[in-house]
């Protein structure tokens, strides 16, 4: 009996707040609010519409485009962020001994800043007039436009890099530390240099941890909401439907169509699932090759 009693709270909460919402979303996505007369008479309950909401969602070019946008965002943001995380993790693992706790804290600290606040902060640093960065670059003769149509996506990506490099560094660093030291010693006696050790031993040894950071970063980026939602208040180049999650929010609140929002949420969920399965397949092939 004991293990069932112990896991009961988790299972109960999981059922109510994770499993049930998914069912509610799927159910609700198959209905729509019926309006009477000329749409002035208020709501008259709901009617079953089958997959109409899905057709409606996928028929909106801005919703489909938002997937392309977060995909492009991820293809650039994830390699930069994880490259930096790996670089810092390797430095902390082998080279940096003095002030290591300080530097680790510095890299990790942005994780303690809520992404909403991080976006607020960087928002100020992007705005001409307030930003010392823009001013400084202007002094160098560079006309920096962080919020222009072509650059704002990358300015948002920078917020993600700033916020999440630290946690990924810690995950990779922990994995590096777990590798038995005598493996390196053996490589060193075989005459392998530090670069070879890093590329041929360290990185393959921690490949599962790196894969995990890739997977969670991809999933996280598909859910992009906080940063663009905050940046949107300082530039019109971020639309209300800039990311899939912003579309869901827009449809549910301002759009007043929670059923459409539910259909969109189901679509985002399915895309997330497909992408994670594809990513783990690719990684299985990749790690087999490396080992």
């Amino acid at each position: 009996m004991a293990p069932y009693l112990l896991s009961l709270p988790f299972v109960a909460l999981f059922t109510v707040f994770m499993a049930a919402p998914i069912l509610v979303a799927v159910w609700s996505s198959l209905f729509r609010v019926r309006r009477s007369g000329l749409g002035l008479g208020g709501n008259e309950g709901t009617e079953f519409v089958g997959l109409d909401n899905y057709v409606l969602a996928l028929g909106r070019p801005e919703f489909v485009e938002s997937f392309g946008r977060v995909l492009l965002y991820g293809m650039v943001q994830v390699p930069i962020m994880l490259g930096l995380a790996l670089l810092f993790a390797l430095l902390f693992d082998s080279a940096v001994t003095r002030f290591k706790p300080f530097f680790q804290l510095v890299v990790f600290l942005p994780y303690a800043v809520p992404t909403v606040v991080a976006a607020l902060l960087w928002g100020f640093l992007y705005q001409p007039g307030v930003s010392p960065l823009v001013e400084w670059l202007a002094g160098l003769g560079v006309d920096a436009q962080f919020l222009a149509p072509g650059t704002v996506l990358w300015s948002i990506a920078n917020i993600g890099v700033w916020s999440y490099t630290g946690i990924n560094m810690i995950i990779i660093y922990s994995a590096l530390q777990a590798v038995p030291r005598d493996v390196y010693e053996a490589a060193r006696l075989d005459g392998a240099g530090e670069l070879r050790t890093a590329l041929s031993i360290k990185i393959p040894m921690v490949a599962p941890a790196i894969f995990l950071t890739v997977l969670f970063s991809i999933i996280g980026n598909l859910q992009l909401f906080n940063e663009p939602a905050v940046i949107r208040s300082i530039t019109s180049n971020v639309t209300a439907t800039y990311t899939p999650n912003m579309s869901i929010y827009q449809a549910t609140t301002v759009g007043g169509n929670a059923n459409l929002g539910a259909a969109m949420a189901v679509i985002v969920g399915i895309v997330t699932l497909v992408v994670s399965v594809l990513a783990s397949r690719a990684s299985n092939r990749g790690t087999k090759g490396a080992l």
Binding site: G83, L90, L133, D182, E194, L195, T197
Partner: peptide, 26 residues
């Protein structure tokens, strides 16, 4: 500022190649 690092992998290779000595285990 949007891309804080020039191609991270290159940087890593640069770092390591300029490193004739490596720290022994202890």
């Amino acid at each position: 500022m949007s891309a804080p690092a020039p191609a991270p992998v290159r940087t890593l290779a640069d770092v390591a190649s300029r490193r004739p000595h490596r720290r022994a285990v202890g």
